[in-house]
Design a protein around this nucleic acid. Structure first.
Lengths: 335, 335
DNA sequence: ATGAAAGCGCTAACAA
DNA sequence: TTGTTAGCGCTTTCAT
């Protein structure tokens, strides 16, 4: 293994000079810089991560904690993770992947060992068990998702309240009066993950203002569960002409069932989805939807973390503005 | 920050004793062990990862490289990644997540810096650019997927040849003679990822032996692409009664299109999928399928890596045996 | 069964 | 602009 000392000897300079050439933390005459850089090339030198971490108390690693509930929509998690990893690299950081298994104790392990300089927590619940430990650890951290108590925390999330409002507005604008909301699986609500409830809040508030009638029904994914949910909805509100779906695994079943019932989309009923764009585009009817900006969330989370590590920290909540894309699943309410 | 030296002082022993209590590398009287363990508790000591890595030349980190092609079925990748992370933890390792962006240079960075003790490469192509570097680095590594040249490498993968054969046998056993194979997107074949071709190979060989007529058509996912593919298939082989699908995003479109054409599943045509179990179960018709054992692949990859790191290394290929689960999408060929 | 002490390879004062 | 040097916190050999 090639060490910094060897590079120094080879270049005829001191160790610190090599170190400073690498870090750029002090000015070096271009002559020596060149010699050092050549030596680095010639010898194939790579700084040792452990030694660096020890000497500088910086690991250049960001820990990413992703809980793994079976009811989460996986591709979104994945997209966020990938965005985090690639964005982190552009800032010189690597990403340590922590899964849910360890839960809160992973926070201790990572912060305690100095294994990572900061953490990003995904899928944060309203009352997340990891938060107390996180706070007391004092580690720079950014949450993706919004807990109940955000004082002193930095969070990034889609503005789900605005998302709900946007859906309501779109349907109202098309003349729909009776709207059914097909929400996430009941388990999601029981866990108080927050985003489902916030969408609903936005939907309700705006619906009231726009004089819409709203019926909310959580639903598991899959055909059978959805068939039952749909039957209930039309039973209670036969005049329903607008749907808002926030459950990726309910999208296709919903479309299939409507079709089977002879209800044409968008002629008879309109459907707005809250889902990743690929899902909306690949569906059997191209869906009008509010996208989940997974990449953007991952990117912003990293940028906040890096800002903190660089000193110009910015506590607070960043809510990404929702964007509704009109596709083929919404149209004027039937007369 | 609490250091090992502080623990030693607090417990009234030497630093090395504390270290040995931690590592168990030499016998300690239970009296002192107890005192040390109490001190560790009392002070809330956590070994510093960087110092450890430096002193021991071991990072206790496994790097996981996942390329990120948009045409890969993401949930499988994710499931593998999660299985890798959790299995690694049970062996005392953490996982560093490397994405495709950096490609081969990440291999250099990680091996050079001693950041990780070993690597796991996902989604290995037949002629993967990362392999030359990997070989010359001499780093312990395990591939998930099968490259063309496997000498000196350790690989884990589903036995796709056997998978293809299994599908052929199942359909043949039900009396089907004309089988259509809806494969991955053309891009997948162009990239020579291997698994698609291997499935086909197994399918072809067994089909020949069983006297089946086979028609293979790659297809992008989504309704439009699949509608075109399906039309071509029935055009060329009107008598087709059996389908093998190896493309998750083609599954639902296929079922929908068959339904729309008035072809009942499984009365008129049978469908066997090669896909993760959740996809097979959630589909609008519960699919007879060969599962992609993502978890198992991740687990085995880690176990191989750990074995190598522990000295009892085991080079070679491990092909996981496919399992076909009969569900509601296959039945006897129509008379 | 335990201790003393020499590094591991790097960073960052402190000097010049 | 460059060099000297004292650690960073741990592991591990060598003693005892």
């Amino acid at each position: 293994m090639v060490t910094l000392a060897e590079v120094a000897r080879h270049a005829g300079v001191s160790a610190s000079t090599v170190s400073y050439v690498l870090s750029g933390k002090r000015s070096i005459s271009s002559a020596t810089r060149l010699r050092v850089e050549r030596s680095i090339q010639d010898l194939g030198y790579h700084p040792n991560a452990g030694a660096r971490a020890l000497a500088s108390s910086k690991s250049n690693i960001i820990a990413l904690m992703m809980p793994l509930r079976t009811d989460m929509y996986v591709p979104v998690m994945m997209e966020i993770a990938v965005a985090v990893a690639t964005t982190a690299r552009t800032h010189g950081y690597d990403v340590l992947l922590l899964t849910g298994e360890e839960g809160a104790s992973a926070v201790r392990r990572v912060t305690g060992s100095g294994m990572a300089d900061a953490m990003i927590l995904m899928d944060v619940e309203l009352d997340d068990v990891r938060l107390p430990l996180l706070r007391e650890s004092g580690q720079p951290a950014v949450l993706i998702g919004l807990p109940a108590e955000t004082v002193g925390l930095t969070c990034v999330d889609l503005d789900f309240v605005a998302t709900g409002a946007l859906c309501a507005e779109h349907l109202a604008g098309l003349g729909h009066r009776d709207i059914a909301v097909i929400g996430e699986a009941p388990a999601v609500y029981e866990r108080h993950t927050g985003f489902a409830e916030r969408t609903l809040e936005g939907l309700r508030t705006r619906a009231r203002e726009l004089d819409l009638r709203l019926l909310h029904r959580p639903s598991d994914g899959g055909y059978d569960a959805l068939a039952a949910t749909l039957a209930r909805i039309f039973d209670e509100r036969p005049g329903t002409t607008g749907f808002v779906v926030q459950n990726e695994s309910a999208v296709e079943p919903l479309l299939a069932l409507l079709r089977r019932q002879g209800r044409a989309v968008p002629e008879d009923v309109s459907v707005v989805a809250v889902c990743p764009d690929p899902v909306a585009v690949q569906a059997s009817v191209r869906l009008t939807s509010v996208a989940i900006p997974a990449q953007e969330m991952g990117r912003r989370a990293v940028e906040h973390v890096v800002a903190k590590l660089d000193g110009h920290g910015t506590d607070g909540i960043e809510l990404l503005a929702p964007e509704l894309t009109v596709r083929a699943s919404t149209g004027p309410a039937p007369a």
